[in-house]
Simulated scan of single mutants.
Amino acid sequence: MSDISAVEIEAAREAIAGFLEPTPCLRSRPLEERLGRPLWLKCELFQQTGSFKPRGVLNWLASAADTRLERGLVTVSAGNHGMALAWACGERGIPATVVMPEGASPFKVEACRGYGAEVILHGDIRATWAHANQLVRERGATLVPPYDDPYIIAGQGTVGLELLEQLPELDTLICPVGGGGLISGIGIAIKYARPEVRIVGVEPAGAAALKTAWDAGGPVELEKVQTLAASLGANRAGEHTYAASRRVVDELVTLDEEGIAAGAELLITRGKFYAEPGGAIAVAAIAAGAVSLDGSACAAAVVSGGNMETGELLKLLDKLP
């Protein structure tokens, strides 16, 4: 599958339907009072393993020949993708290794191990990629990309299909962006059926991999990644996600650390959604005024993950003015 279309996303929904339930779209009146407008929340933090990531992983596994699985799977992850792969492989008895940066969330490290995966902590995000590729060569294992793969992107696009059914009047969608797999898949699904819907991506200013790629005309490796929103800490946009996002994303904005922290705190305290900073960034961008919803009659924000331990919550609160 060299390109991704709505056909592949529909096929992905069939492939994962027996394993995952759709997530709800909800509203929070106290949150809306603070924002000063209605806002639907697509609650991917309620998905298996606490994020949208199992969608792509399960679709990838459904496409993979047995010969690609027999020597095990290896991936690179700050946590959520690794947890999804560990869970899915644990269900099927497939050996999985997750290579994570040394500063990864202890909560996510232990979750990956709890699902049965081998976890290797190795350097920063650049070093994790080098080590993962080395393991693939040494073991004859198969690398499962965290975002830059057509089957992964198509799986994430099933979020878009659910949104179309849950919110037929949707006119604006705001989505977190790390490597770009989620917004690419959602954008493809939504734009095929409703090309007039405005798709807005939000990245951390300290990990603006997709915005950098847009500005450069193609994926570029970031020299440094530093953000509270660790789940969005990709150091490079993918070839597939760059191409897809240019087709289906209308706007791409970045948000600083204060804005991310304030928005996450708002979503937790007023919205009552225990979202991690990366999962809360779409709401945070609205609260900070980085994304305008003037003229929108039906807007939604994706809350992409909720895997945060108390230590990370305290770090978030320390960022508040």
Rank of each mutant, 00 (worst) to 15 (best):
A205L: 10
A205M: 07
G206V: 12
A208W: 02
A208K: 02
A209H: 08
A209R: 04
A209E: 09
K211W: 04
T212V: 04
A213S: 06
A213V: 01
A213Q: 04
D215Y: 00
G217N: 04
E221N: 02
E221F: 05
E223T: 03
K224R: 14
Q226H: 11
A229E: 10
A229D: 09
A237G: 13
G238C: 10
G238Q: 06
G238L: 05
G238R: 03
E239K: 13
E239Q: 15
H240S: 11
T241R: 05
Y242Q: 06
A243P: 04
A243G: 05
A244H: 09
A244E: 13
A244F: 09
S245A: 15
R246H: 07
R246Y: 04
R247V: 10
R247Q: 14
R247N: 10
R247D: 11
V248E: 08
D250M: 01
D250I: 06
D250W: 02
E251N: 02
T254E: 03
L255E: 07
L255G: 13
L255V: 13
D256E: 15
E257C: 11
E257L: 12
E258N: 14
E258P: 07
E258Y: 14
I260Q: 11
A261D: 15
A262Y: 13
G263Y: 15
A264R: 12
L266G: 15
L267D: 08
I268A: 15
I268P: 07
T269S: 14
T269P: 00
R270F: 10
R270P: 01
R270L: 12
G271Y: 09
K272P: 00
F273M: 14
Y274K: 04
Y274W: 14
A275F: 06
A275S: 14
A275L: 08
P277E: 11
G278M: 05
G279M: 08
I281Y: 05
A282S: 14
A282W: 10
A282C: 07
A285Q: 05
I286Y: 03
A287W: 06
A288C: 05
G289Q: 07
V291A: 07
S292E: 02
S292W: 01
L293W: 03
D294L: 04
D294S: 08
G295R: 02
G295V: 01
S296K: 02
A297N: 07
A297T: 15
A297K: 11
A300V: 12
V303L: 01
V303R: 03
G305C: 10
G305W: 09
E309W: 05
G311S: 12
E312D: 13
L313Y: 13
L313F: 15
L314E: 15
